[in-house]
């Protein structure tokens, strides 16, 4: 067990533990803070897998910008205790069944992958590096890149239409 293995297991435990805390936290603000910890752990995984650009972008966009959005959403909704939605017995059962189905699908999908039983592949592959990613994005995937700008345009228009009335 070398240093990268220890780091891998530490980051994995951190990611899974904080993700569980996101779900079971009583206060939504704590959930958001634990989600930030999860994103940091996932960024650490990206960096270990030689995808440094993705790791930093994950921090800038998700831990930085998206979390601010989440906080704004929490501040927009009414959080007083008398206004909390009541979760019925059937809703809990449906949630458990849906989550169990997703878990089953994920376990079945991961069972037959070739990376099963292997530790993290430190320093192999270079598609996550910024110059390789740029080359792939602007030559091979230039059409999806342009389509994504249309997606952003529609998001802008939608936000303005809904927010401004």
């Amino acid at each position: 067990m070398n240093v990268s293995d220890i780091l891998f297991y530490f980051l994995s435990a951190l990611a899974i533990g904080s993700a569980i805390l996101v779900v079971i936290s009583r206060s939504p603000i704590y959930s958001v803070l634990w989600l930030i910890v999860t994103f940091f752990a996932i960024s650490g995984h990206y960096i270990m897998m030689n995808a440094q650009f993705l790791g930093i972008v994950n921090l800038i966009v998700y831990a930085g910008a998206i979390m601010v959005l989440f906080l704004f959403v929490i501040m927009l909704i009414n959080l007083n205790t008398d206004a909390k939605p009541q979760k019925g017995k059937w809703l809990r059962l449906a949630g458990t069944v849906a989550g169990g189905c997703l878990l089953l699908v994920l376990v079945a999908a991961l069972k037959n992958t070739e990376v099963k039983g292997m530790g993290v592949q430190v320093g192999t592959g270079d598609i996550g590096l910024i110059n390789q990613l740029g080359k792939a994005l602007f030559t091979e995937y230039v059409v999806p890149f342009e389509i994504s700008s249309i997606l952003f345009l529609s998001a802008m228009v939608g936000a303005v239409v809904i927010g401004k009335k």
């Binding site: 910008a65 959005l69 704004f72 501040m75 994005l137 802008m156 927010g163």
Partner: peptide, 28 residues
């Protein structure tokens, strides 16, 4: 715990969109 104005959210979501635009400039 008073619900705040939706204007903050509008500014935040527009910030996220332009933030992502700038990130696409780095690989270029």
């Amino acid at each position: 715990r008073q619900p705040m104005a939706v204007k903050y959210f509008l500014v935040a979501i527009l910030f996220v969109l332009f933030d992502v635009e700038v990130i696409f400039f780095y690989p270029y």
